[in-house]
Computed example of a mutant assay.
Amino acid sequence: MSEPILSEAEYDAITDAAAHWCMRLHEEDCTSAEREAFAAWLKADPRHAVEYEAMLEIWDVADQLPPTAVPQALALIPKRRRWQGYAMAAAISLLAVPVVGYLGWSLGWIPNAYQSFETSNQLRQVTLADGSQVELNLGTQLTYSNYKDQRRVTLKKGEAYFEVRHDAEHPFVVKAAEGQVRVTGTQFNVWMYQDQVRVTLLQGSVLVSSNTTHPGDGYRLDPGMQARYKSGDHEPQISQTYAQDANLAWRDGKLVLDNLMLSDALPLINRYLERPALLADKNTGTIRIGGIYSTGEVQRLLTSLPKVLPVYLTQNKEGQAVINAIPQDTPKG
């Protein structure tokens, strides 16, 4: 049985509802009752889910609009398409109106191509709209937007290896946590866990910024170099590395821990766990671990730690695994 044809007003009502739910579900004060109502609305008509998915894509792009774009956009948007009191909603409406959308492209506010990719328990290789190639590690989410003045990737979580198509007039920018990586054409790897980021360069050159609110183009990496930063860092830490070292083993489905302290190894391990494990104290973090493990069996690695290290596992109130060092007997003297 075919779906009934809707009037323009009915289509507008679905769009408005999708925008409303998109905003509410992104708010911290969204209640359980609202989430149940959203689930019911989603199931009521298959067109609701289609419109909501489209709205999520617009939301991702709208989140990148410059602050000055929203007030200018409000003056151009038909009143019936505004959602009063929401700057982000105005940005969504800006993207939804074709004439204003063209103006947004010409001003560099809005992309003419948008892609979203996600992996769970399998590696994935994708081709971006500009022809660049990207390999995604397990549990990775990223989006790609093509703007008039730049190509922009947002790495939301996980890890990705990039082979960027050269275009000196159209820089390629990867945003990760509070920083970014800027290139014109090269090969590099970006790993992110929570607010920690690590950039490894194989070919070409990149500019790495740990905080995009600070002035400057960033710190240049040459092949064989690596940059690390976390939230609050004014500048990244730069070090030498190797093109085929442990940082790229994930492309072969491996996690290589090269005699690392647990405090350094745990973020690498937690990237593959549904619930991150914790260290009981600083002393536990000084214990070293080594070995090569399958990225698809990291949960088994966690449960087997007491067999290879002087540690035992407990759980906190939230059900997270906690790694504890076994107390050492004090020598009698």
Rank of each mutant, 00 (worst) to 15 (best):
A9Q: 13
M23F: 00
L25W: 12
A40W: 01
H48Y: 03
Y52C: 02
E53W: 14
A62Y: 00
D63T: 03
T68Y: 14
L74S: 14
A75K: 15
R81P: 02
G85H: 00
A87N: 09
A87Q: 08
M88A: 10
V100I: 14
G101V: 00
Y102L: 09
S106C: 04
W109N: 00
S116F: 03
T119M: 06
R124K: 12
R124P: 00
T127W: 13
A129M: 02
L136Y: 11
Y144R: 05
S145I: 06
D149S: 11
T154K: 08
A160K: 11
V164A: 00
A168H: 12
V174N: 05
Q180G: 11
R182W: 01
G185L: 05
T186G: 09
W191V: 03
M192N: 07
M192T: 00
V199C: 11
V199L: 00
L202V: 13
Q203H: 15
L207K: 07
V208L: 10
S231P: 01
G232M: 10
Y242Q: 15
A243K: 13
D245V: 09
L255C: 04
V256R: 05
D258L: 04
N259I: 11
P267C: 04
Y272Q: 03
R275F: 00
P276W: 02
A280E: 13
T286G: 03
S294A: 14
T295N: 03
G296L: 07
L301I: 10
P310S: 09
Y312L: 12
Q315C: 09
N316Q: 12
K317H: 14
V322P: 04
V322D: 04
D329F: 06
P331L: 11
